[in-house]
Design a protein around this nucleic acid. Structure first.
Length: 308
DNA sequence: AACGTCCTCAACCGCTGTAGA
DNA sequence: ATCTACAGCGGTTGAGGACGT
């Protein structure tokens, strides 16, 4: 049996706080300081539970809270920190002076998350959402242009994309083999999709003792400093999908088509919630691979091969 | 003007971690 | 080792406002 909720006692008020209640709470804390929330309501003359008082203080009444809209800089910091910390709102708030975890959480869910979805970026992984691609049009484009089939150029993509996508590319390779001047290429791509590492990225794949974090791709520049990350924090970096696919016009075109087909064109303002959430949970394991804990994020942006 | 739908965000709920008895 | 109280966290809810028809 779980613990009895602190607000179970009947008679304690719930819901929005009145200015009078706020005043009582502020006055009491100014005199006695915060803390001992259980006993505070009684001594402050409030008919609230201690938990409600604590939340009201920490999320709204604290004098160091910065009100008003988030700046673009704050927004950028939130996105970057979220890509590293995930839904650790308190940890993110600790790096944004004047903002509360509740405020950041709300802002993420109501603004940033939706915007990332509209951009075709998975807000959980911060990776491009390949589930939104129109694979049939990609296949048509690829089959019509065998030069696109050198998937090795896709940033050694087999370590970035999931097995399903790579199998798809392998299938495309095999289907197009009769049109290909170099039949070896197709089998090479197929072999890569089945697990053979691309030369360019083997540096990322060396196992390093003691590392258990994940790394997905990243478009944003690395944080200049991300102090106090836990030893086993998953490091998640965003990959700029345009940068990744920029030299593959057919793929970019297909992605754009797919986005529009899914209601993500730039003019739409929002997507129906159900669809959004369905898509949301669909793409979690894309673009992940292992990196050493001591890996310098900045290195990625220097060492990613630019020879697409 | 009336109504319905959607968005925002303060507040709540339920759970976990921790300290002390 | 176990229990209890408490603080804190992340997810969820719902009232109120904005907006569209």
């Amino acid at each position: 049996m779980g613990r009895v909720p602190c607000c179970d006692n009947n008679g304690l008020k719930k819901g929005p706080w009145t200015p009078e209640e706020d005043l009582k709470l502020i006055n009491h804390i100014q005199i006695h300081g915060p803390g001992n929330w259980r006993a505070l309501p009684k001594s402050a003359g409030l008919e609230r539970c201690g938990k409600s008082c604590r939340l009201r203080w920490t999320n709204y009444l604290r004098p160091d809270i910065k009100r008003g809209r988030f700046s673009l800089e704050e927004e950028d910091i939130i996105i970057q920190l979220h890509s590293i910390l995930g839904n650790k709102w308190s940890a993110i708030a600790a790096r944004l002076p004047g903002r509360t975890d509740n405020e950041i959480k709300n802002y993420w869910n109501t603004h940033i998350r939706k915007r990332l979805l509209r951009m075709g970026i998975d807000p959980v992984t911060h990776a491009p959402r390949l589930d939104l691609l129109d694979m049939s049009s990609i296949l048509r484009s690829v089959l019509g242009n065998p030069s696109l089939l050198n998937m090795q150029g896709l940033l050694g993509a087999h370590v970035l994309m999931n097995q399903g996508f790579m199998n798809l590319s392998a299938t495309a390779s095999l289907l197009s083999i009769k049109n290909d001047e170099n039949p070896n290429l197709a089998s090479q791509n197929y072999a890569q999709s089945q697990g053979a590492p691309p030369q360019d990225l083997t540096q990322f794949q060396r196992p390093v003792e003691g590392f258990s974090g994940n790394l997905s791709c990243s478009s944003s520049p690395p944080l200049s400093s991300t102090p106090d990350l836990g030893e086993n924090e998953n490091l998640v970096l965003q990959q700029n999908q345009v940068g990744l696919l920029g030299n593959y016009p057919a793929l970019v075109h297909s992605m754009n088509n797919a986005s529009q087909n899914m209601g993500f064109d730039s003019s739409s303002t929002y997507v129906k919630r159900g669809v959004e959430e369905e898509k949301d949970s669909f793409c979690g394991d894309l673009f992940e691979f292992e990196i050493p804990e001591s890996f310098d994020i900045g290195d990625i942006f220097c060492s990613v091969p630019q020879t697409f």
